[in-house]
Design a protein around this nucleic acid. Structure first.
Lengths: 124, 124
DNA sequence: GTACGTGGTTTCCTTTTGGTAACCGCAAAA
DNA sequence: TTTTGCGGTTACCAAAAGGAAACCACGTAC
């Protein structure tokens, strides 16, 4: 019995742009984080307060992932107690139009669902 | 002991537009479905083939939810075997710019991650 | 010494999600 | 009569996600 190479040569991933981008935007609160950071840099506790319902754990996980994907920059300031500032990287800035578009649709959805008396439409 | 009315008068939901919109776009494959439907109306089996990896169950659930939220219109055609056509409603059309913006970022992410040799960035 | 604030981490738990596979009803075709 | 295609539905299951609460290190303030 001989070990053979597979017939298919592991066809290149050919990532779908939509999935590519959604893999960054996915997960609870991620768009909100980007939204707030698009305003100005923020500290951990600021983001926590801004978003309100997010847990520390999830916020940590999100920020770590965004950092790993190059969307967010993390900087420790030499203060005491040390504060940490998060801001959108150059790459992160590219997401702003997408987030803005989503927010924009959100506004229109609100108007429409108000007209139609669909109480809030779908909620999470 | 007297039953009292609550102090807070059930403050209005005050839905965040971002969450509002993401509650529609959320869930695996949803943006892809909208993307394909934004091209032209499609049948169930077409969408299934277009997206490829989606299961019938999830596709059903997504379409039902999109229909319920008024984004997608479902029409049964009087053919045999009966075919069902899905298309974006007027409200669904509003989502096109947002999806387009996301796709656009996806393209740029691809270029950047190619440059940086981050192999695909984050995958789902 | 003790408490406090910052920015987390860790553990545990419940809920949600999404996939697989089997099944279904109908009408037409073979 | 059996099969085929369409458009699903259902039951079951494993994995992932996300929340709560406890914990942690560090330097400063009291």
């Amino acid at each position: 019995m001989v070990v053979r190479r597979k017939n298919k040569v592991a066809l290149p991933p050919e990532v779908c742009p939509l999935r590519q981008c959604m893999s960054i935007l996915g997960g609870a609160w991620t768009p909100n984080i980007i939204w707030y950071l698009s305003g100005r840099p923020r500290r951990f506790s600021e983001l926590r307060a801004d978003i309100g319902e997010i847990s520390a754990k999830v916020l940590t996980v999100r920020l770590r992932r965004l950092e790993a994907s190059g969307v967010v920059h993390r900087e420790v300031m030499p203060t005491s107690p040390p504060t940490v500032e998060y801001r959108l990287s150059e790459l992160g800035q590219e997401l702003k139009p997408a987030i803005a578009a989503i927010v924009d649709v959100g506004h229109r959805l609100k108007k429409i669902s108000a007209k139609k008396n669909v109480p809030g439409g779908l909620r999470t």
